[in-house]
Amino acid sequence: KSHRRENGLFIYQDPKSGLHLQIPLMGSRSTESSDSLAFPHSPGIFDWPVEKYLPILLPELTFGEHVVIPAFYGKRCTTGLGLRNSFFFRYEQPELITKEQKVVSGMGNCKVNWTFLGDKITSEFVFTVKNPTQMDSMRYVLALGAPHSRYRIGTTFALGEESLRASVEKDDFQANWADPEVVAEDPEYRTYYGKIHYLQVLQRNHPLIMRPGQQYRLTVTFQPDIVLADE
C-alpha cells in the first residue's frame, strides 16, 4: 500500500449562475486558520474568517483529546462526471486527522464526496470507526457574510434573501441547529472581502457511541441565492 498523501485544488464554475469556487485539499502552516480547509471557498457566497479556525461546511468530531476534521489530505482523490452531467470531487482519509494536522492512527476513517450540478452543491461525509468509540461532540458551521460596504464593485457577488438554501438530507449524528450567533461587530470575524454577520451551527453536544461496521453519514445540500452586491 502507498503511504503517499494526495493534495490539490479542485475548481468549479457554473456559467449560468456565475458561481465560482475552489476546494483546497492541502496542509496549512497555521492551525488557527480556515484558509486551507477543504470546503468550497467563494467570497460573498461561502465565506470564512481570516486567521481564525472554524469547521466551515465540514463536520468536526471530538473524541476526547482528538478533534478531527476531514481536511488537509486525501487518498484516492477523484474528479469526474456523474449523473445528469454533474461533476464530483471525492477523496478518502484512511486515518482520521485532527485540526492540528496530526494523524490519529487506528481510530477510523472518512470518505468525502462533493457533487456539483449547476448551482446546486451536495456534500457527503461518511465516517466509520475500527472499535467502539465515544464521540463527545460534533459541530458544523455556516458563516453568513457580506462584501465590504465600501471597497467593492457593483458586480461583486453576495447572498440574496434566501441565503445558502442549506438543507440537511441525512444526519446520523442526530445534531440540531443552534440559534444563529450574531458576530457582525466582532473584529475576529472579518473576511478578506468584508465581514461575517452570522454563524449558523449544526451541533451535537452530548456523547454518541460509534460502532464498528456502521457508517455515520452527514449529507448537506446547498443552492445559494446569488445576487449582485448593488442590486
Rank of each mutant, 00 (worst) to 15 (best):
T98P: 01
P180K: 09
L57G: 04
T78P: 04
E60H: 02
H3D: 15
S34Q: 07
V129T: 07
K1Q: 11
P70A: 07
A143C: 15
L117G: 07
F72P: 04
M210D: 03
Y216E: 08
T122D: 11
P40N: 01
T98R: 00
R76Y: 11
T78M: 11
K99V: 10
D172M: 00
G27Q: 10
I226D: 08
P15L: 09
T221L: 05
G80V: 03
G8F: 08
L61P: 05
L81G: 06
P180L: 04
Q203I: 02
L208Y: 08
L144S: 10
L54A: 13
K170F: 01
N131M: 12
R29D: 13
C77L: 12
P187N: 06
S36F: 00
I45M: 03
K1V: 12
F88E: 02
K102L: 11
S33R: 01
D119M: 09
G145F: 00
Q174I: 13
Y73A: 02
S123Y: 03
E188G: 13
A166F: 08
T122P: 06
P94M: 00
G27Y: 12
R84Y: 08
T62R: 10
V67D: 00
L199D: 00
G108I: 00
N176R: 09
Q200F: 07
I11C: 14
S167L: 05
Q93C: 03
L228S: 15
Q134C: 13
V68F: 03
E100A: 14
N176S: 14
I97Q: 05
S33K: 05
E188L: 14
N205W: 06
Y189W: 09
G82K: 04
G194N: 01
R90S: 03
R211S: 15
R4N: 14
G194P: 03
E95M: 00
E231S: 14
E185V: 02
K130G: 08
M210F: 10
F10L: 10
A158P: 05
K170Q: 14
